[in-house]
Design a protein around this nucleic acid. Sequence first.
DNA 1: CGCAGAGTTGAGGCGCTTCAAGAGCGGTGG
DNA 2: CCACCGCTCTTGAAGCGCCTCAACTCTGCG
Lengths: 251, 251
Amino acid sequence: MTNVNTGIRFPSLGNSYGSPTCNSCQTKARSAGEDGEGQCGYLEQVVTSRRRIKRGAVLYNGGDKFGSLFYVRSGFFKTCLSAKDGREQVTGFHMVGDVIGADGIASGQLTTDAVALEDSEVWTMSFDLIEQYSNECPSLRFYFLKTLSNEVVRLQSLALLLGSLRSEERVAVFLINLLEKLKSRGLSQSEVLLRMSRDEIGSFLGIRQETVSRLLRLFSERRILHVDNRHIKVLDSHLLKTMAESQGVMH
Amino acid sequence: MTNVNTGIRFPSLGNSYGSPTCNSCQTKARSAGEDGEGQCGYLEQVVTSRRRIKRGAVLYNGGDKFGSLFYVRSGFFKTCLSAKDGREQVTGFHMVGDVIGADGIASGQLTTDAVALEDSEVWTMSFDLIEQYSNECPSLRFYFLKTLSNEVVRLQSLALLLGSLRSEERVAVFLINLLEKLKSRGLSQSEVLLRMSRDEIGSFLGIRQETVSRLLRLFSERRILHVDNRHIKVLDSHLLKTMAESQGVMH
DNA sequence: CGCAGAGTTGAGGCGCTTCAAGAGCGGTGG
DNA sequence: CCACCGCTCTTGAAGCGCCTCAACTCTGCG
């Protein structure tokens, strides 16, 4: 147990459900020399490696054998699912605090590609070790269950967006969610430097890059945003929220 | 332990990843008097009630307090997510063997509505008990983890469908998946009596009911399907599969 | 400076929606 | 048993939102 006090932390995932504090195995935690913060020592135990991933590099590919989950320590990733015919769907953007790779649990194979959109650091968490320590530490187990459940909730919302919203609303929702996520991580809530291209935004939102571009200009003209290439500043967050649920044509 | 031999079974979930056989806690299983099939006695323990749900009745609503998962024993359900403005997205159709309600783990509140589309039977599995027995039975724990992971994979595919496919392909994929699911449960693989309306199919696929109707007629005219209201028969499954990935315009 | 990739912008087209009207179906009651 | 009613489904006509295609500009980087 060499790394108990190296400052390894699993921060809040930004959904306000908190970090995996260990309430139910306090005995274990205490015997492991943990402090009053309630952080469970087991979390450190499951991390088997720490990797730096360059921008553009692939963390994993769809079809790769599943053996671990990945904790994004810093940087920014996209995950995409590809159809047989080559069409791609970006299924998510992931930043510090996110855990990715859980789609592989079901079949033992990862289903998406994960690509770094900026230089990043990733901690590999062995699934075998997670399984092993899950016996001793219920809160560790619960943490990963919640992570999975959160991903389900997120993808349900994505389905709602893709299935029911007009493109204008999609872009507005995208920006709101992104800023909300940044805010929950203590970063700016009105300004962002996009790590992804228009094309990647479009793929995520189920629209073309040209449409993304046009809508950003529209928002810009309406003084809702200030857009300078990938640098976005929100000028009127109230109006942006209105756009996100503008009672459009589609019902 | 009164119900060990009542024949309660968690059938294969139709994804070929198998039922939660208990390989890793064989000692436990044996001591619980289980047979050579490897079925883990703990599965019976977490079921706290068995309910019959009439067609049209609600199993749960979005916002309801989460406390258990639901195992669909028989019948057919839809789950839908509603936006604030009233728009609805059907996020899934669920039949025998499916577990629903896992979206509630993350926040303690269910996020979708679950409505029975035919008279159904549901087993309620207490989450507290699942948590409790998870300590003793790793395969029980793993079973629910896989269930969650499967839901993630399913929703990723839905996102791909909603984000990248043309409506013709969506309907084809929908039918193929439905028939595949029926097949995995030992039911007909070329014929189906739809439990859901055109409107519900449309909501699921992100298109209008009129479009669903038109496309079914199109498939019918091309001798791919025989359509009689909700009764669908596949005449040319090869051609149907072709439609599902017809190199359309959208790339 | 020059090049490749990313982003923008316009023009035209088409796929799906919207709206509307009618047909079909299943359940209910006289 | 059939007539009725509500709901689902179908079908057509018209419109529009987003896509496609293409040309151009901008940005970052060697």
